[in-house]
Design a protein around this nucleic acid. Structure first.
Lengths: 246, 246
DNA sequence: ATGTCTTATTGTAGATTATACACCATCGCA
DNA sequence: TGCGATGGTGTATAATCTACAATAAGACAT
């Protein structure tokens, strides 16, 4: 076999690998959450446990978008959501942390020099059952303000995703409604605006705009068992929305 | 050597290659232009000559941004501009056109299965001397409405770049001023708006906003040798702009 | 010199949208 | 029954957007 293995090693570190990473945002009605995979391993400094974005290398004959949907499904069980590509990350140093290098070699079974990753973002109603496919890949919803230091450059990826969402919602606010459950209160939507844009909005001015939107329809139901006046529920009407804006 | 070459071939088509492509927009005062490289080659159906975006595969240890600057400089001589990443393209079919496959093998000297490319966009004052580095890589400014069918999926890349520019200019119009020469008339800026957004703007309403911008300063000079009343020149004052918006 | 052609330059009125701001209602619970 | 917490609502002012047309300046042809 004459060094065939050595050759393969050389090759696989010479050419960049391409991966996709998914930043999936969810919303509880109060706080913004993000879907992370817990990662356990050992490195020079002993055992560790930390978090990473759901992501993986793409297949040989797979489109980037397809890879993102596949990976998200494989790692979390999530299907039927819109993923949007927002940025690619290719710094040679992004896979140079020793902990990350060891983890990559163990999980991809290959020596890897660098990985260019393509970032995808989704807004999703929180609370879908998350399917855990193995003990190593366990998906969790984490409060965005409490994610600590993630694997690779994933903190940067998350920041960039948030910036993209803010910009993108200017041209089409429909993404916001993906972040809410079927029925929601006005305050929940107001909270969502505040966590995404990072600033308080005026309650009465918000109400004025909210109540003028024809595609927000009011339901009969109200909150129950709350220690204050119960708020009315609303729903987002996609049909009316599409009639107006598509 | 026992099939070592075969192995290399397998490897290089197994792992995706990563390239960058640059969409560089320029503006004459009337029409939007884009920087393209002419490509000559032969394929099954004889000689051909067509155009492609300036782009190339990245080096082993090169950041994506660095690669974009390097490639643009190598192919066109352009330096010192802002390039912004806007989207990545990775469809397996994007490198399957026979003409493109042959061209790739000749220019990269390697059999390549697929290339994931990262798109960069820049707005640049037109008219900088373009440096031609070889007979095969000759850079030209082409009218955006007259670029025909480009190599690979580059027509799609250009479309996406334009959409990105439109969106991006909402949050920061400074990019627009990169597209204009040092001194420009109000009509030139108005034309630029019209070609970028693809619709007529009201002359007087535009003037009202234009003349209220503190960072647009009027010069004494006027147009010369025009067959009508000469228009006044203005310039963009970066210092005033930064004082207000940074 | 005069007229014609082409583009430059400028304002106003009305509609729409954004902002600032405070009080009463309702419900659970002690 | 009263307190604590959140829900729900209007008005006045400022700022911005929209629609719209007549005169000015220079080049050129006669």
């Amino acid at each position: 076999m004459c060094h065939a293995n050595t050759l393969i090693m050389l090759e696989s570190s010479l050419y960049p690998h391409v991966s996709v990473d998914c930043v999936v945002f969810g919303f509880t009605g109060e706080r913004l959450h993000i879907l992370l995979i817990s990662r356990n391993g050992t490195s020079e400094d002993g055992c560790y446990s930390d978090m990473k974005l759901p992501g993986s290398v793409i297949y040989e004959n797979e489109d980037l978008d397809d890879a993102a949907y596949r990976v998200l499904h494989e790692l979390t069980g999530i299907k039927n959501i819109y993923l949007q590509q927002f940025h690619s990350f290719g710094s040679p140093s992004r896979t140079q942390n020793p902990r990350d290098k060891v983890w990559l070699e163990n999980s991809i079974h290959m020596k890897i020099g660098r990985i260019v990753t393509v970032g995808y973002v989704a807004l999703i109603k929180i609370g879908q059952k998350l399917q855990a496919f193995s003990d190593r890949y366990e998906a969790h919803w984490c409060d965005i303000d409490d994610i600590g230091t993630l694997a690779f450059d994933h903190n940067i990826v998350v920041e960039k995703a948030l910036a993209y969402v803010r910009l993108k919602l200017i041209e089409d606010p429909i993404g916001l409604y993906e972040l809410l459950p079927k029925r929601f209160t006005e305050a929940e939507l107001r909270n969502l605006h505040e966590v995404i844009y990072g600033e308080k909005v005026d309650i009465r001015n918000f109400h004025k705009k909210f109540s003028s939107l024809p595609y927000i329809v009011s339901l009969e139901e109200k909150q129950q068992n709350v220690a204050h006046r119960a708020a009315r529920y609303y729903r987002f009407d996609k049909i009316i929305y599409n009639q107006i804006y598509r």
